[in-house]
Design a protein around this nucleic acid. Sequence first.
DNA 1: AAGATTCGGTGACATTGTCACCAAACGATG
DNA 2: CATCGTTTGGTGACAATGTCACCGAATCTT
Lengths: 222, 222
Amino acid sequence: MTGQQWTARFAGLARLAPQTQQILLEKSAVIDVPAGTTIFGPGNSPENMLFLLDGSVRVQQTSETGHEIVLYRIHAGQSCVLTTACLLAYEDYSAEGICETDIQAAAIPRAVFDELVAQSKEFRDFVFAAFSKRITDLFLMIDEVAFQKMDVRLADKLIALSGGQDSIATTHQKLSVELGTAREVISRQLQEFQRRGWIEQGRGCVNLINRTALAGLAGQQH
Amino acid sequence: MTGQQWTARFAGLARLAPQTQQILLEKSAVIDVPAGTTIFGPGNSPENMLFLLDGSVRVQQTSETGHEIVLYRIHAGQSCVLTTACLLAYEDYSAEGICETDIQAAAIPRAVFDELVAQSKEFRDFVFAAFSKRITDLFLMIDEVAFQKMDVRLADKLIALSGGQDSIATTHQKLSVELGTAREVISRQLQEFQRRGWIEQGRGCVNLINRTALAGLAGQQH
DNA sequence: AAGATTCGGTGACATTGTCACCAAACGATG
DNA sequence: CATCGTTTGGTGACAATGTCACCGAATCTT
């Protein structure tokens, strides 16, 4: 992947005017970052707005009590809205972004971003749509954290993390961070799922045996 | 309050170029809405972006299980970011905005908003700062809902709702919606605060007796 | 092979959420 | 004023979840 013409690969950017795409291509740098890197976090504000070309970034937060929770993920074709937000508002991050895979991203300088927002209605719509989606997703997350039962949330998360595969490489500890709960809660719930024959467990992995049953629980609303 | 020159009254807008302020003043309509009105919600998307000149709007969400939770409030000088978001992203609202007081607002048509974002760097900064603040506040709320103890959250909320006064006109039910919990939980916790001599209760009101003690609990982080 | 670390299991208990009631206060109405 | 319905808040039992203090087994390091 050379990075040339990357604007054409994503629906949100391909509809930009040719000269707008040209500015993006000319004035941004394509960078590669290895998995595990913290690309932004407290005391580490990037100079540029990142547009993710390949890979995924996990955004999570650590509370003052030491509890962690995953807020969302950024995938290829998405911009890091929090980066954008903090670039523009001069605020400290309250969250950190960790590369879950090796990633490739376009680094767009602040001034270029501002110029594009001013010049291109399509780019404005892209940016505001990203903000909007992020906020409404956070609304849904608040609803889930506040009101959804843990078994439903865990079933939901297992389906989401499986990505169509039947085996998930993760630990109880990592799952507890995904949902903002305690490791013991995950252990008990997975035992219950196993007792029902919906999953099988190994050290560091969970195998989905009955995806339909899990999806049924996840789909329930109360 | 005539509404003339309202742009000058708010720090975020007063620094706009005079011609930008002129566009805002000329192309937006100042409207008055009585307390209790739902200014936006599912199936009720406003045509305009609202900029609040006076009063406050409570934004809350009802889950599919019927549980309610207050997400945030919009006060004078703030724009309704969710309105903005949905104007620009064509999405359905997942939340509703209810006037807590009689309000006065400037209704800015979508096209005018877009024009201002394109023309004025100061306006862009204002809008993105509002989005950024909203998102980081939602991060804090997720952290609080997921990890903070209920007594701390309630003490915090009582201080916030008091607005410096020593008497709060509210019900246990309303407080439970503020925190996304059950009425019984609020009742028990308020009884405990009363037992400690921190508050006194009347039907439909809570009187703060020992604000310092409440603030101390609210300030604790674990 | 030995020691350290990670991973997961377990029981006891505290906190919070849910449910099914109840009674008192309040408001509307005749 | 008397009555009725609604709102508000109190209560106990129980379920779900969070917290704490452990433990042993698997894995990794050296």
